[in-house]
């Protein structure tokens, strides 16, 4: 009797081990892709950031911290004095500021949109979601040029406003931070709407009714019930918008012109005209670090305030 149960448990254990082994095997393709596509390039970047810059691009295989120094410091060409790289710091600041503003704008526009879709009859929801995803069918560059067409001095918006005699001169939107923000909002808005919709669809609207019933006005229902309950969607959407905004370079390049750089452009510049690959690599890793820190703060914050909302 004891023997039988003993051998049974042996058998079970063997079966479990085999299953674990098989699961690992099944994971292998994913792991290979992950290592090659994500970690590999990252390690190359890390490696390059500690090398010496070649004269015409490329790297010299010699250890150097210059790349990292140059992220925040510059050596004056005339008197060899180290200064803060104001240009870099202002690009950092602009990137974070514009990405944050884009994220907030996306929440403000995305929330009512997602709410609208989530409150449609089930059958027509797919149609609205389909409309939201249409822009993804077009190349990013083309979408950005479409925005340019709208906001440039001779563009649709300015012409319309002038035809209506609302303004005498075109409003200068192109080549400003506003233009970059408009462009990024347009490009990343679906990434906000989809997770917001996903969490709103799960929202039990009877809870909204319960709150109305308990004397909550519409604004208070929104603040005390809807927003706390769809917070996971807001957090996910914000992350999905903030991170690519931070690294965007096509949109700021086209709409911001040459002067309003963002981090993505600065990095691209180092590999392109600047020909300072170690600096480019160090900047890339800095960008990654900013993203990670932001994520950590966000997750911490949303965990701590989860459930409680004043």
């Amino acid at each position: 009797m004891n023997d039988v149960s003993q051998s049974l448990s042996d058998y079970e254990q063997a079966a479990r081990q085999q299953e674990t082994r098989r699961n690992w095997l099944l994971c292998t393709p994913a792991l290979v892709v992950l290592v090659l596509a994500a970690s590999g390039p990252l390690l190359v970047m890390l490696f390059y950031s500690f090398l010496k810059s070649g004269n015409y691009g490329g790297v010299i295989y010699e250890f150097s911290l210059d790349g990292w120094f140059n992220v925040i410091l510059v050596r004056d060409i005339f008197d060899d004095v180290l200064r803060f790289a104001d240009a870099h710091l202002s690009v950092f600041w602009r990137s974070i500021k514009l990405s944050a503003m884009t994220t907030i704008t996306c929440v403000i526009i995305g929330f009512p949109t997602a709410y609208f879709i989530a409150t449609r009859p089930r059958r027509s929801r797919n149609f609205w979601l389909f409309l939201i995803t249409i822009p993804f069918w077009t190349n990013l560059l083309i979408r950005t040029f479409a925005i340019l067409e709208l906001i440039r001095n001779n563009g649709v918006i300015n012409n319309l406003l002038m035809d209506l005699w609302l303004i005498d001169e075109p409003i200068q939107i192109m080549y400003t931070d506003t233009a970059i923000m408009i462009g990024m909002t347009y490009v990343y808005l679906p990434l906000m709407i989809l997770p917001l919709y996903a969490s709103m669809e799960k929202l039990d609207f009877q809870l909204v009714e319960a709150a109305y019933d308990l004397y909550a006005t519409r604004i208070r229902v929104l603040r005390r019930v809807i927003i706390p309950l769809i917070k996971p969607g807001i957090v996910a959407g914000s992350i999905l918008v903030f991170i690519p905004s931070l690294g965007a370079f096509v949109t700021p390049r086209v709409l911001g012109g040459g002067k309003n750089l963002m981090l993505g452009n600065l990095i691209q510049l180092q590999f392109d005209q600047g020909q300072n690959w170690p600096l480019g690599a160090a900047l890339s890793i800095t960008l990654l670090a900013i993203v990670m820190v932001t994520l950590l703060v966000y997750v911490r914050y949303s965990q701590r305030s989860g459930g409680q909302d004043g």
């Binding site: 009714e209 109305y212 308990l214 004397y215 909550a216 005390r224 309950l229």
Partner: peptide
């Protein structure tokens, strides 16, 4: 919210993000 009438819902519809006491106090708070 302007009617002095309250409802006990069939599936209760308690606020999942609030505690028992916060649920009970919700109407008064509003």
């Amino acid at each position: 919210f302007k009617r002095p009438v309250n409802t006990v819902f069939q599936n209760y519809a308690l606020f999942p993000h609030l505690t028992v006491a916060e649920n009970i106090g919700f109407g008064l708070e509003m």
